[in-house]
Nucleic acid binder design. Structure first.
Lengths: 254, 254
DNA sequence: CGAATCCTTGAACACCTTCAACAGGGGTGG
DNA sequence: CCACCCCTGTTGAAGGTGTTCAAGGATTCG
């Protein structure tokens, strides 16, 4: 199901769209790269056929050959646990890079699954490394993206380690809101492409808790929620919930 | 206080020790780098005077100029939360690199504090980037280390999102055990350089819970604990606790 | 030796989970 | 087109795990 808000993305038949013409240009790898360099980067990028909801971009353990940039749609990454369950490690929106955590082990430590119909740019890693050795701005951008990912993980760690259920969900909604805004969508009106189950899993909460929280937020006038459609009414209040409250956690003396 | 198990590290007056003579050679940046390349790397690395327990290597917000490798001792990294509390994001043992999460924002998003007397190699980042543009093995190693850090964070996310208190502490002890072993120390007999408070903070648990867990592990014959001194008696059982048990978490349908 | 800090243990409470039942969509087939 | 079913999402009640509050014991350092 294509969400109305996401239809400013180029239609699927324009799969040859160059980086320089991509609406995600400023959110993706090419940041800070000049025209001739951009052509070089462009030449190594492959555009894949869109993948459908539920299909995998890569599986756990599959050999690491490329990193991937989301062009449209969304995915979730997750790792299976020993018990046959799974832990969702992230949701990935247009302009975001996936697969960088595979560099170390040379195979993917997590799987990536499309949450809806999703189109992807594939960037062979050996060629990217080659190219980034020559283009210092690209090398820097690559490190920056990885650094950003570490940063994101740290904020998530804080979320899971210190925050209440209410704060966690508020933080996720705010994160999505900001990311949609940067991509030119409404920050207050969007569709969740992931299920309540995915959200609960990601935030370390039971599905029922997530559902109850949505209801509570609705009762408090923070948002309107109808199944997957979210309309944030009071962004300030949502921020207050995400940051404020909760005197949990310890001052760590040392 | 120097812990007996850590005295195989070179004494403090040998601060000019070259990478090639460092006992951490195979755990640090120089992995897979040949002799001449190593000299080049060596030439940009500064050895700093050891820092004492409680002193900071860098603060939150301080400008990003270098990454740091731990030579001896240990540190903890943490980020302050809005409420004036803090979240511990990691413990860092000899051979490990700190500061890579600062690349993106150009200033340190977390602070690093010595848990004991600690000596450090400082590696100016601009020169490291320069050098890694020329040495592809170094470039690759740098990406690998960042990838490894992302990987570590993901396992920690799983820990905080899905695991019980018992599993979390067991996992931390196993992680320390393995890391000490790789560094040539005993995997079953070591000193914790961090406080119970730090551990609880890191694992998202109250100090009291950590304390109770140590007692329970002792009662179950898994380990002997005397303040900071840990002696693991039953590594297999500790692994069982860390991996097995607990049917929490959700199968995430989609 | 005294003070401060860290660690441990106990009891009551809170938050979230688990278990259970039901409601609402979306797809399929008659 | 409607009935049916499956899946996702919602809501209620009971229970558990970890937290908070409180107090006492151990260790370190001036």
């Amino acid at each position: 199901m294509a969400h109305p808000a996401q239809q400013i993305i180029a239609p699927l038949d324009q799969t040859k769209l160059a980086c320089k013409d991509c609406s995600l240009f400023q959110l993706c790898l090419p940041v800070g790269i000049d025209a001739t360099e951009l052509d070089e980067l462009d030449s190594i990028i492959k555009r894949r056929r869109p993948i459908k909801r539920g299909e995998h971009l890569f599986h756990v353990g599959s050999p690491f050959q490329a990193v991937y940039a989301v062009r449209s749609g969304s995915l979730r990454t997750y790792v299976p646990t020993e018990d046959g369950l799974e832990q969702v490690t992230g949701f990935h929106l247009p302009g975001e890079l996936l697969g960088l955590d595979a560099i170390h082990l040379k195979h993917h430590p997590c799987a990536a699954k499309a949450l809806e119909t999703t189109s992807i740019c594939e960037i062979p890693f050996d060629r990217l490394e080659e190219l980034s050795a020559r283009l210092s701005s690209l090398q820097h951008q690559l490190l920056t993206i990885m650094s950003k990912e570490i940063l994101h993980d740290h904020s998530l760690l804080m979320l899971l380690g210190k925050k209440s259920a209410e704060e966690r969900l508020a933080a996720l909604l705010l994160s999505l809101s900001e990311r949609y805004q940067r991509r030119g969508f409404s920050p207050t009106d969007f569709y969740l492409s992931m299920s309540r189950n995915d959200i609960g899993n990601y935030l370390g909460l039971a599905v029922e808790t997530v559902s109850r929280l949505f209801s509570r937020f609705r009762e408090e006038g923070v948002l309107i929620v109808q199944r997957k459609h979210i309309c944030i009414l009071d962004l300030a209040k949502l921020r207050a919930i995400a940051n404020h409250k909760s005197n949990r956690g310890e001052e760590s003396g040392g």
